[in-house]
Design a protein around this nucleic acid. Structure first.
Length: 268
DNA sequence: CGAAACTCCTGAGCGC
DNA sequence: TGCGCTCAGGAGTTTC
């Protein structure tokens, strides 16, 4: 499932398209999270100006229109020769000058919208601060957690608090700060809040760097992608030994999400 | 109003 | 080998 580092890597992988003009647009399955706009063919003749990321959204700005795209849980983009056979779950193909962009998404939780649509605008309007931005700091997080009885893990995954912290990195950040995921958000001390902020920045920053190096490797024709290169301390390791103390990693459900933690390193 | 539950979807993994 | 089940999860929407 794409986390923020994967989205950043995806954006970078699309850079070869900047400056290229759309030749043709083909929709094979329009029912994603919301329908792909029926008038996507307006992109024909428009040149891709630049790509941006906001939270886990990628914005693709063309001459006249812009797209707001989200990979959901299983979405991915690929750049392929137009002659390559379409795979199952390739829902959208956009022909550029010398290559074809394909959106692939088995679970179809992703979305592709016009940026100017009211829906897209309201999605962007509800987003909180970027985790790597200086505005995400102790004061900000403390203010957001104040009086919040929700579990801290649910709180840091709330896009109104801070964007881009998914289940994997929320679990990892809480492990490395020794904070139990079910602790009421308001129960964290100022010191714990500061460590959590720094840890979120450290983990995401490192993952993005790894993703970047992965992308270079990929372009050179080798390598894996994304966080799979990173060693995950607790996520997906329930039942296994904690990498710090050897205790058995436990798991509980918070906000309908599996939440792995070390009962010894992260006491309640 | 905030918080919790529900929802979309397919593939992987499992027991039999 | 195949069936049916459960689980995985981002995040908007609905419900309480």
């Amino acid at each position: 499932m794409p986390e923020l580092p994967e989205v950043e890597t995806t954006k970078a992988s699309l850079a070869p398209l900047v400056g290229q003009t759309v030749q043709q647009v083909s929709i094979y399955q329009s029912s994603l999270r919301w329908p792909i706009p029926h008038d996507m063919s307006r992109l024909q003749g428009q040149t891709l100006q630049f790509l941006n990321r906001r939270a886990k959204y990628i914005v693709a700005r063309f001459d006249q229109d812009a797209l707001l795209m989200h990979l959901g849980m299983s979405g991915s983009f690929a750049l392929l020769p137009a002659s390559d056979a379409r795979r199952k779950h390739d829902h959208l193909c956009i022909d550029f000058e010398n290559i074809q962009l394909r959106y692939h998404d088995p679970r179809r939780f992703g979305s592709i919208l016009w940026l100017h649509e009211p829906r897209a605008q309201s999605l962007l309007a509800s987003l909180g601060v970027e985790p790597l931005d200086p505005t995400f700091n102790v004061d900000h997080l403390a203010a957001k957690l104040k009086n919040k009885q929700t579990a801290i893990k649910v709180a840091i995954m709330d896009n109104a608090v801070v964007v881009g912290v998914g289940n994997i990195y929320a679990s990892e950040a809480l492990f490395y700060t020794g904070i139990h995921p079910a602790r009421p958000a308001a129960s964290l001390t100022p010191d714990e809040i500061e460590r959590l902020v720094l840890e979120i920045k450290r983990i995401l920053g490192q993952a993005i760097q790894l993703g970047g190096s992965t992308l270079r490797d990929y372009v050179n024709g080798q390598g894996e992608t994304g966080y799979f290169q990173q060693t995950l301390a607790v996520y997906g390791r329930a039942g296994q030994a904690c990498i710090h103390c050897g205790a058995v990693v436990d798991s509980l459900r918070l906000g309908q999400r599996a939440s792995a933690f070390c009962p010894a390193c992260q006491p309640i």
